[in-house]
Nucleic acid binder design. Structure first.
Lengths: 213, 213
DNA sequence: AACGCTTTAGGCAGATCTACCTAGGCAATA
DNA sequence: TATTGCCTAGGTAGATCTGCCTAAAGCGTT
């Protein structure tokens, strides 16, 4: 069991400056963090698949794909890894935009290592929580997508029209027999792995189903 | 009906610089915004009660209570008015902290008025949405607090133990008769203004009841 | 053609919910 | 003391849910 790479959360480091990569890697490794460094955004994207928990220390200004573009790319692909930006010559507008896009922090070089450590720990903590709730969300969505069309329709009505969700009402809404609604609802609850309509509503809301916005 | 002060959302402006106050007030008023300017954070606090919808344009560096302190104070008192910081000599750390604390924007002086207008419109839009959902949240919490102790207990169980919330289960949990649970549940649904347990669960989650964190 | 899945729908029995009623005990209040 | 509100609990009747069974029609796959 000497495979330390699998142990805990990982700190991804993306910076085109080899000196920064080397010094930060060394410093963070010494403090017990699992560090994986990349010289460019594309190198990182090639290696990152979202399965490894961790945070991303990201240089804002890089040749090729810059930090903001990488952040945007990750966001668009559903990766919510917390990002700590580090920058050599960015300004307030850049930091504000990064924060608006969901960055958890933005540090100017040079910075104290103690500060970085602090921010990394905070980022890893948020990541831990996010992963936890995300597991349930993912499960809920997958289960929902495994429903048949009609079942999805029933699930949707049960979850959104919470005020009047008797078989009668739903049957009238869909123009079918209450018995059929009973049947579908039973399938829905079974397939969604819940024991009541209330639990279905809870799971749906927490997973953001039917929420759009 | 010439009372324009009551019409739409309001732009609160807090800056110790009289020149800025005057020029921004004029510019924004000309563009149709309702502007109320204050020379200090405390002046604003004396006047602001949270009932007026609007956004806050806030100078970061001010003598006395500064912008960040005002932001913190508002946050602690449950006021979620969106804040756009403006600053003369702040840096990235200041902007990042402000954003982390929930500011919607952070602009360096000098800035183009068109940019400010843009950000104000965005802030007012978020405020509009927040107010809307906040109304329901408030209503839910008030209704919950108007329940008796036992009713709150029942409501809590119904909302959190969604998997097994039959009268039997709850009765066993509380050591009382299922009939009594029936009675309380009926009271709860009536007083909470909902038509089903599912709707209660929905309202509770959306209002953040029983969520702690 | 045979099979499986989906949607539809009904029967039936038992559990549960809901809405109406009564009613006693208890504590705070008028 | 009388009243009010809360918690408790039961009766009854009707509505609804739930789980178990059957079954037909349509559609796509093997």
């Amino acid at each position: 069991m000497s495979d330390t790479a699998m142990d805990g959360p990982c700190v991804f480091l993306v910076d085109d400056d080899a000196v920064i990569r080397a010094s930060l890697s060394r410093a963070l490794s010494l403090r017990g963090y699992q560090v994986v460094a990349f010289a460019s955004a594309t190198d990182f994207l090639d290696a990152y698949d979202g399965t490894t928990a961790g945070c991303l220390i990201l240089d804002y200004g890089m040749p090729g794909m810059d930090g903001l573009q990488l952040q945007k790319h990750l966001k668009e692909n559903g990766h919510k890894v917390p990002i700590i930006f580090i920058t050599g010559h960015g300004g307030i507008p850049e930091s504000v935009q990064a924060m608006k896009m969901g960055a958890v922090d933005f540090l100017e070089k040079p910075f104290k290592q103690s500060i970085l450590i602090e921010r990394i720990d905070a980022a890893l903590e948020t990541e831990r929580k996010r992963r936890k709730s995300n597991l349930q969300t993912k499960e809920t969505i997958e289960r929902y997508q495994a429903l048949t069309e009609r079942e999805q329709e029933i699930a949707s009505i049960l979850s959104t029209h919470t005020g009047q969700n008797s078989s009668k009402e739903i049957a009238r809404l869909l123009g079918i027999s209450p018995r059929t609604v009973d049947h579908h609802r039973a399938r829905v609850l079974e397939k969604m792995g819940v024991g009541s309509v209330a639990e279905l509503v809870e799971a749906s809301i927490k997973a953001g189903l039917f929420t759009e916005t």
